[in-house]
């Protein structure tokens, strides 16, 4: 291996500084969330305690945090399932040219890059004008899908651009029906990507704020609840909350990575 150039060390240092910039704030609030009972929003630490974490689950301290969390988790799962199924189907559709395919593609792009407040306002107004009551599981659900489906479809494009069709052809040559090819060849090969889409869909929905604003109805999802708290909670309980939600996200990612690893390992065992 040849010697690394000077630029490697500069860029490496730059990368580390960036990571510090990326993680620094999160680490700071994680530390401050263990602030003692008399401590405030900034340093210095006045002792350390789990006081603020205990407060988190008392209704009067921070509003209804637990049910907002549960609501967001439920919505995340609903959105995740639909995103995976609909993106897979649409991805399959786009493997062939069909009339209107470019319109659908540009619509999907538009859904991704149009300002979220527009989508939120539009869906909110639509429900209002038709006399429907907006709810997190109806209008909120729809508005989240406009955000997660484009990511899902773009990932499907990326996957199919690199996908080798000979496996399917071989399976068809050997006399498998379309459904058999799909179930036994396509689905196992696509499984890791589909998990990725699921992970993306879940976390995007779980953190979505702008599109939920006018579409969640009377009950807040977690990000809305968090935003409300930023204006009226002025104790380290906010930091405890931030740390807990970050941990939830991390757990979801880790879980998916572990599952992915399991999934990748399985075929090898069968091969032996």
């Amino acid at each position: 291996m040849d010697k690394r150039p000077m630029s490697f060390y500069f860029l490496g240092a730059f990368f580390i500084v960036f990571l510090l910039f990326l993680y620094g704030p999160n680490i700071t609030i994680a530390i401050l969330s263990f602030q003692g009972e008399n401590g405030g929003l900034t340093f210095p630490m006045r002792g350390s305690s789990l006081h603020w974490y205990a407060q988190l689950f008392e209704r009067q301290a921070v509003g209804d945090f637990t049910s907002a969390l549960l609501r967001s988790l439920a919505l995340g799962v609903m959105v995740m399932i639909c995103t995976v199924v609909f993106s897979l189907l649409a991805g399959l559709a786009f493997r062939k040219r069909f009339v209107g395919s470019s319109t659908v593609f540009y619509l999907t792009l538009a859904s991704l890059i149009l300002p979220s407040i527009l989508v939120s306002l539009g869906i909110g107004l639509m429900f209002d004008r038709f006399g429907l009551t907006p709810n997190w599981f109806s209008s909120g659900f729809g508005s989240h899908l406009t955000w997660t489906l484009p990511f899902g479809l773009l990932i499907m494009f990326a996957v199919f651009n690199r996908f080798n069709p000979s496996y399917e052809m071989a399976s068809a040559d050997l006399g498998a029906t379309t459904l058999q090819t799909f179930r036994l060849i396509l689905l196992p090969l696509l499984a890791p990507s589909l998990m990725g889409i699921g992970l993306f869909g879940f976390t995007l929905s779980y953190d979505e704020f702008a599109r939920t604003l006018m579409t969640s109805g009377a009950l807040n999802t977690l990000p809305l609840e968090l935003f409300a708290m930023t204006t009226n909670v002025t104790s380290p309980v906010l930091y405890a909350l931030g740390t807990v939600t970050t941990l939830v996200s991390l757990c979801v990612i880790l879980l998916t990575l572990v599952l992915l690893k399991q999934l990748n390992r399985k075929p090898k065992h069968q091969g032996n």
Binding site: L89, A93, V119, G122, R129, G142
Partner: peptide
């Protein structure tokens, strides 16, 4: 024809929750 029904759920969601709401706006 397969492509059409496969693209349908996505298209319907986008029409109902993106195109139509923007028309309402």
């Amino acid at each position: 024809i397969h492509s059409y029904w496969q693209a349908l759920p996505l298209t319907l969601i986008l029409l109902g929750f993106l195109v139509f709401p923007i028309c309402v706006i």
